[in-house]
Simulated scan of single mutants.
Amino acid sequence: MTDTFALKPADAPTREVREPRIRLSGVADDREMMRAAAELTRDLQKPKQWLYWTDCLVSAAIGYAALVGAVLAPNVGWALLAGVVSILALYRATLFIHEITHVKHSLLPGFRTGWNVLVGMPMMLPSFMYEGIHAIHHSRTRYGTAEDPEYLPLAHMKPSTLPIFLLVSVLMPVGLLIRFGILTPLSLIFPKLRRVVVAKYSGLQINPGYERKAPTGEFRRQWAFQETICSIWAIGVIALVATGILPLKAFAIYMGVISGVAVINQVRTLVAHLWENEGEPLTVTAQFLDSVNVPPPSFLPYLWAPVGLRYHALHHLLPSLPYHSLTQAHYRLTEALGLESTYHKASYPTLSGLMARLANNTMKPRDGR
């Protein structure tokens, strides 16, 4: 792990999860907090190239080695253990897709291409599926609205929404195999299908109403390259299984690992925000309050929210800050701002508490809905 785990006396208490929904509409921007965040982190903005490459490569190497270990394991127990290690390591490696969308590529030369070849292609999650999509989620005027591809008012939806939300992630590797192994080559032959594939099946989004526009310029070339290598990979996997070269056991473990990565990420997504906005444009501070930090001393976020994502609210406040700088930024803001500051209102103690809060909110009356 790259985040600092040491505790400091200035750590602020985290919030209880039984609090009522936050009234986000009309929340004014906390200028003092925003100014402190900008001033106290000026020296933390530059990404460390060596750390990005080392962290990603080591995580991927451990993940693939454990995947092979799961396939070759002599019994179910060892296979399960290796599978869990593979899921956690490849989950961490995969989450660098989030960094790719925020850090200037000129500051990390070659990283986007390297990540796509080493991680994006084997996991069938090329970065074009997130680039452009995620930027909208950080838009000052579109966060939490119907135009946000990464937002649904889950706290105001039916309780059945949450298990369905998780079930989708279980089936994600099957969907990706179909997307790149079947729909991609077919869409090159049928223009109408291509328009549908681009609009509805080319983004890591949770808003079913969002439709993506066709790429242009340099991003179009990146998209074409990434989609091509993923399509070749997916077609190759299908062909190897169909011809018996790749045993069904190995294929099932491979798909199971991708499914495991998707499930953990979907659980993390459920607690990345409070999901309490009902479609209105929000101020930066309101967006911050609808987002979540799970700071130390809790240890488990190092596993389910790695690569800085345990500080998701802080990330929405400072989206360009590299993942390895978020811990230091959090401590600086914790020490600089009083306990009554808005900053501390976005910190929560545990994943289970956040899940309970979300589940409880879905069971509240919804004004006749």
Rank of each mutant, 00 (worst) to 15 (best):
A6V: 10
P13S: 07
R15P: 04
L24W: 03
S25V: 12
G26D: 02
R31G: 08
A38M: 05
L40D: 03
L40S: 06
W50D: 13
L51P: 03
D55R: 07
L57K: 12
S59D: 08
I62N: 09
G63M: 06
A66S: 13
G69P: 03
V71P: 07
A73R: 04
V76N: 13
V85K: 06
S86N: 03
S86R: 05
L88D: 09
L90V: 04
Y91H: 12
T94D: 13
L95S: 07
K104D: 15
N116I: 09
V117N: 02
G120L: 00
M121Y: 00
M124R: 05
M129Y: 14
Y130T: 07
E131L: 14
A135D: 10
H138K: 05
S139Y: 02
R142F: 07
Y143L: 00
Y143S: 00
G144P: 01
E150C: 12
E150I: 05
Y151M: 02
L152A: 03
P153S: 04
A155S: 14
I164G: 13
I164N: 12
S169A: 15
M172E: 14
P173H: 03
V174S: 06
T184L: 06
L188G: 11
I189E: 01
K192R: 15
L193V: 01
K200R: 07
Y201E: 01
L204D: 04
Q205S: 07
N207R: 02
P208Q: 06
E211Q: 00
E211D: 00
K213P: 00
T216R: 15
G217H: 06
E218Q: 11
Q222H: 10
I232P: 00
I232F: 10
A234Q: 04
A234E: 03
A239L: 15
A239C: 13
A250E: 04
I253S: 01
M255S: 13
V257H: 09
I258R: 13
I258S: 08
S259I: 09
V261T: 11
V271F: 14
A272G: 09
A272I: 02
T283K: 00
T285G: 01
L289A: 02
V292S: 04
P296V: 09
S298M: 09
V307K: 14
A313P: 01
L317Q: 09
L321K: 06
P322W: 11
H324V: 09
L326D: 05
H330C: 09
L333W: 03
T334N: 11
G338V: 06
G338T: 12
E340S: 15
E340G: 08
H344D: 04
K345L: 12
L351A: 12
G353E: 13
A356V: 10
N360D: 15
N361M: 11
T362P: 12
T362L: 10
K364S: 10
K364V: 08
P365Y: 11
P365G: 13
